[in-house]
Design a binder for these strands. Sequence first.
DNA 1: GTGGTCTAGACCACA
DNA 2: GTGGTCTAGACCACA
Lengths: 119, 119, 119, 119
Amino acid sequence: MLNNRDPIYLQVVNYFKQQLATGHLSAGQEIPSRRELAVMLNINPNTVQKAYKEMEDQNLIMTDRNFPSKITNDQNVLQNVRKELIHDATVQYIKAMKQIAIPVEEVIDVVKEMYEKES
Amino acid sequence: MLNNRDPIYLQVVNYFKQQLATGHLSAGQEIPSRRELAVMLNINPNTVQKAYKEMEDQNLIMTDRNFPSKITNDQNVLQNVRKELIHDATVQYIKAMKQIAIPVEEVIDVVKEMYEKES
Amino acid sequence: MLNNRDPIYLQVVNYFKQQLATGHLSAGQEIPSRRELAVMLNINPNTVQKAYKEMEDQNLIMTDRNFPSKITNDQNVLQNVRKELIHDATVQYIKAMKQIAIPVEEVIDVVKEMYEKES
Amino acid sequence: MLNNRDPIYLQVVNYFKQQLATGHLSAGQEIPSRRELAVMLNINPNTVQKAYKEMEDQNLIMTDRNFPSKITNDQNVLQNVRKELIHDATVQYIKAMKQIAIPVEEVIDVVKEMYEKES
DNA sequence: GTGGTCTAGACCACA
DNA sequence: GTGGTCTAGACCACA
């Protein structure tokens, strides 16, 4: 699951966002404890802590003292996760394509073509 | 031209790749000397050197003793720059979209829609 | 270990190639950190970094985040190091001998003779 | 004749040494003037001057005021040129081979083999 | 003027 | 602790 380029804690955050966007995680659901996840992913507990802290800052999860963290119940936040992931990736992509002056038709052709190939 | 996220030297490399992909730079053309570009971009000459070294390693430029570097004459390399920029950005984009299970139709709608908005 | 003619960072690269060619270093083995080697050789850490970057570009070493670099596991690359060192040196040598028209028999006599003398 | 790696003036010096070692130039013979050679090789006259200065320092040529430079008449020097070229190249080569522990038999096999292939 | 190397030293993210 | 980036500034060979 982890690559060697991006910071691990951000990869963890992103993984949870994907789970939310796809509905594999939903409001109020418990997520693994810091220690559990650290063991599961074979990474440093501090790194998990940093990821969870980031998610708390973004109101994606909430943590009550002595309880496992849970996915937020704020539907607004949850619905925005998917939109935001799509929006950010698309903005970045289109920016790159415009910088090299690719017309929209060619972009769409490439996307269509590669969407099937790529695993 | 420069942002604060990516390493400066990579942004410089990328800038030249864009210029090649769009045809604003072409085979055999001289590029600014290390010192000149450093002044133009207000960065350290060593950073420019690092960028140029990277481009040299990728065969994008060639350097004769005591002359400013020039764009390679290898048409093969030059034609690949555009393809590579498109390919890499698209692979990354599609990967992100698939991870959150966006069907190809929705992706294309979003791309079309945002392609006009975004500056 | 270092001479005054060739760039230091290339001498470092060459040293590691020799260690690989002789089997003193092998697949997966850790090499000293940038800082350690800099202290050992009494050179600047940036110079070591430049050498390691070069080795990374040649796929001789690989680097995981926050870990010391390791010798590549790519057996193909490793086996080529020895061959390449022999080949490059021999090509250069023979070229020099041919330029002054030394017949192969004389070359071999000289090599045999000097191979024992030279330390 | 010129490569892009070594200093041009040293390549010029080396060219004359080769001509001497092979007997294509011999004692007392006139060599081209600075200006002539600069034009012939399309290089800067200062570079030729530097090369000739180097050859004078090594007593390979002698220059009388207002006359073209000539090859030295010192037979001792002339005979040493060939020996020196062979010796220096062989020392360097053997040093490289020993550093990677190639036994003399293998070295000779490689030399024999490549002596025919290489142009 | 050109490209290239090197040091000293600061600073960064990450674990 | 790890790797990586960047600046300031000196210095080199070469043309």
